[in-house]
């Protein structure tokens, strides 16, 4: 990945706390709404799923795709975002 988005940098810059799921890179309003419907209303719940899937890129992207119909770029962004966050804070 050549560069990261501002959203990505914002997210990775600090602990996620109680941030909503839309703060994740690659998750916009629409995907955020769908994730909330699926029960993932906070970023940390998505992180939990990410961790349960053992930070596996393929599975996480697949899951995101299934859960909120994210496309590959969005899911890759989200994956990268969580991964960088974990590298920083976990």
């Amino acid at each position: 990945m050549s560069s990261t988005s501002q959203k990505h940098r914002n997210f990775v810059a600090e602990p996620m706390g109680e941030k909503p799921v839309t703060e994740l890179a690659g998750v916009g309003e629409v995907l955020g709404k769908r994730l909330e419907v699926a029960g993932f209303d906070k970023a940390y719940t998505v992180l939990g799923q990410f961790l349960v899937l053992k930070k596996d890129k393929e599975l996480f992207q697949e899951w995101l795709k299934d859960t909120c119909n994210a496309n590959s770029k969005q899911s890759a962004d989200c994956y990268q975002c969580l991964k960088d966050w974990c590298d920083e804070f976990l």
């Binding site: 799923q49 349960v52 899937l53 053992k54 596996d56 697949e62 899951w63 299934d66």
Partner: peptide, 17 residues
């Protein structure tokens, strides 16, 4: 596949895989 916890949320995905 890597062994990972099978929960309500991951089961569907893993089954699919």
């Amino acid at each position: 596949f890597p062994i990972m916890p099978i929960t309500a949320s991951t089961r569907k995905l893993l089954v699919k895989k």
